[in-house]
Write a protein that binds this DNA or RNA. Structure first.
Lengths: 208, 208
DNA sequence: CGCTATTTTAAACAACTGTTTGAATTTGGT
DNA sequence: ACCAAATTCAAACAGTTGTTTAAAATAGCG
């Protein structure tokens, strides 16, 4: 295992758990059992390390996600909104093959990125991976053409919020659910719960 | 203006903008134009200051919110889910009377509190203001009795996520919306957009 | 081997963190 | 006006932060 990967592996765990601001380089290097200076040697700075952690997941996720969404767009029949959101399931759960607890870790990181560090990560993702966003809005438009661009803008951001926020606190929520309802829940179970919710939200009647 | 309030006013602005971890006491005291040591003198610690900032809003919000929700519960006719969520509008917008940009600031703080500092603020709110949560779930149960406790648990947390996440990045979203759609938007406009969304999400058909 | 380039290491850096101290100042009551 | 309590203040505290340095170790290759 290379030093670079040791750092990435340790960093993503701590970032997901305590946020980017809340994690120090010393915590990362001691969990990864590498020297402190290795971070700056291999990545240049903490900010670049954050980008590298996210890129490792995005490079795995985005091709699968884009092809799943564009398949919906170029199909003859009109997809339902549930189809559109279900297109996320396979690419997201595939991150579990890529890495242990990959799905949950990635979604937690995404949640952190939206609130930590004044949104520089949002800028990074939208500029570096614009294809995901355009394919997604295209697919939603095909499923629900009556929705104006402005209404879609809001509802898609509401959806981002629901997903990202839920996942960034998914560990705590899963704990509570298991105590209160005595039911085994995992990240896939949460995803299956959230899809009807966001699909219905986006499909809400237009209020003019 | 008392020193205590100068600190609270400066702190809430910076906390909302940069998060609790991301804001130092020195930034707060220099924005508030008070001495650094005043924070520890008046509040004891940074953690207590965070609680005080949140309490000032919660004490203003929670009685109005609880009475609006319990009014729904004790009314004879069954409320719709839209009624339940609309019950939030007046108490939330009232925070703008209480303080300039109060609504948006409070909701941003709430968003910060859920992700920053490993959820200690969530613990604080649920233990210090349990009435809001119980009244809310009661009202939703009256509007949608078929929803099991577990499904309601998830959907209410999805809703929290939608609201809190949207509001914590509402400044950025409002900026984008005004550029892209050339339309004046404010926090009340966002609230009116989000209510049909969350109401439809909670009302989604049960998927068994 | 011998040499170069890459990588690792311990140590130090300056800047910043929340908190404490003790003296100076202001305030409110008599 | 006096005294005591409450408040403000500059300074320092000890600890942590990201980053840099220069020497030591390792690796790769002819």
């Amino acid at each position: 295992m290379s030093t670079k990967n040791k750092i990435l592996d340790a960093a993503e765990i701590l970032f997901a758990d305590k946020g980017f601001n809340g994690t120090s380089l010393r915590e990362i290097t001691s969990l990864g059992e590498v020297n402190l200076a290795a971070v700056n040697y291999h990545f240049g700075s903490k900010k670049e390390l954050i980008k590298a952690v996210m890129s490792r997941y995005m490079n795995e996720l985005s091709p699968r996600l884009e092809s799943a969404l564009s398949a919906l767009c170029h199909h003859d029949v009109q997809p339902s909104l549930k189809d559109v959101f279900s297109a996320f399931i396979e690419p997201l759960l595939h991150l579990n093959e890529f890495k242990e607890n990959g799905t949950s870790t990635f979604l937690q990181l995404l949640g952190r990125g939206y609130t930590d560090s004044q949104g520089f990560l949002r800028w990074f993702l939208t500029t570096q991976y614009p294809g995901v966003f355009t394919h997604f809005t295209e697919a939603v438009h095909k499923a629900y053409p009556e929705l104006s661009a402005e209404e879609m803008f809001w509802r898609l951001h509401f959806t981002m919020g629901t997903i990202v926020f839920t996942m960034s606190s998914s560990d705590a929520l899963i704990d509570i659910a298991q105590n209160d309802f005595d039911r085994q829940v995992d990240i896939a179970g949460v995803i299956k719960q959230v899809i009807p919710y966001v699909a219905a939200g986006v499909a809400a009647p237009i209020n003019r």
